[in-house]
Write a protein that binds this DNA or RNA. Structure first.
Lengths: 212, 212
DNA sequence: CCGGCTGTTTACCATGCAGTAAATTTTTAA
DNA sequence: TTAAAAATTTACTGCATGGTAAACAGCCGG
């Protein structure tokens, strides 16, 4: 089974591997270039300068600047979603808390590029208003994040730990506050925004969930 | 009186008036061009095409693209702030409500470009993370908006209409939710976001203020 | 050792763009 | 009326930028 897979899978997967490796390099270079210059002032040259390879390889792997950006979008969204995985099974209060923390502060383990990645994510997110295709990608992503929060709230309601509020509405509100705090930290440079948001959520929103 | 004013005011104010008129035309053209193309893809040519004048006049009135954008920033922020003026003096609950509504839905009178202006505002707001000067301008503006909400909350607490919560924290939270809803409507195209935000604020946040 | 395939580089190009300069019209101050 | 100043237009330029083409390197099967 494995053997036969390799027999005809070989050349294909080999190429793919080396190809994927380079593409990963390009993605990371794009990320760095984007961090430095911002989307508006991003030049293909800037990306090239962030790699050991020359900028022309990009044209070999991607079909122009737009295609590159589309791929990068998926790349950075995947990273985002990978970073908010949480061991569910814990009680709803703990899990909700953990999810909120991860959205606000990033993964526990020291991912020191977290805010740089958020910065880039957020910039692309805003620009998506001018691009239907990218907007659709972000909508899917947003829906998943929001959905995961709503889920936990529903779980808590079913278990009788939370009051019987409108889970959709509550999840939406929490997601919005998280988004705003992130935006404020990134766009306005308010370093304390996530912490403030957490306190505000605890104090004014979650008490609507808890006090029975 | 009028005569004497004209005597020494003539050359200066006339120039200024005609100059300001043209600059206003340029600002509005910039707004339209920005709405159509987005900041990233904004060309001086696009602005020219939105006016009766040729694009080169812009260079006469402004010192290049960056200077133009800086001026436009102040222009659109002034418009924003002009649109959230509210007759204070009403009771805190009503006034807070009115301010929230104006931030979420725009001025009462039919300003049908409201969301287009918000869209442009929001895009510039996000790009400001790459420009310290612009970021500072937005910070000042944000502080005024947030401050005006905090003020009303404080007023309500003093008058004993609201519970004695941390006004700063509460004002911040409300401002954040407003911001997020706007961002969601603009970036993700969620038409219902402002309405949802209003309901969520009423249901989950303001009840922390009211129930005494 | 060789012919073909993938991936990378070097050299180059077309053009879109902001900005300028000079000519022209309009306004202002006598 | 007139001359100078302000405002606008027409014509042009230099260069930054995305993209291409052809040469080149490494690898793999035979």
């Amino acid at each position: 089974m494995l053997v036969s897979l390799r027999v005809y899978g070989m050349s294909e997967s080999r190429e793919k591997v080396s190809s994927k490796e380079t593409e990963e390099v390009i993605m990371e270079a794009t990320f760095r270039a984007l961090s430095k210059h911002g989307y508006k002032d991003l030049r293909m040259r800037d990306i090239g300068e962030e790699m050991d390879l020359t900028r022309q390889v990009i044209h070999y792997h991607f079909d122009g600047k737009y295609d590159l950006m589309s791929s990068f979008l998926e790349y950075i969204i995947d990273q985002y979603e990978g970073s908010v995985e949480v061991a569910d099974g814990a009680d709803p209060r703990t899990e909700l808390d953990a999810r909120i923390d991860q959205c606000l502060f990033g993964p526990d383990f020291e991912e020191f590029t977290h805010w740089d990645r958020m910065k880039v994510y957020h910039e692309l997110y805003t620009y998506a208003q001018n691009d239907d295709e990218h907007q659709a990608i972000f909508n899917d992503h947003y829906e998943r994040i929001r959905g995961s929060i709503v889920e936990v709230v529903e779980e808590g309601i079913e278990e009788g730990v939370f009051r019987d509020v409108d889970a959709e509405q509550m999840g939406q509100l929490i997601t919005d506050v998280i988004h705003a705090a992130r935006g404020r930290r990134i766009s306005l440079g308010h370093e304390g925004a996530p912490e403030e948001a957490k306190q505000a959520i605890d104090e004014f929103i979650l008490d609507s969930l808890y006090e029975n």
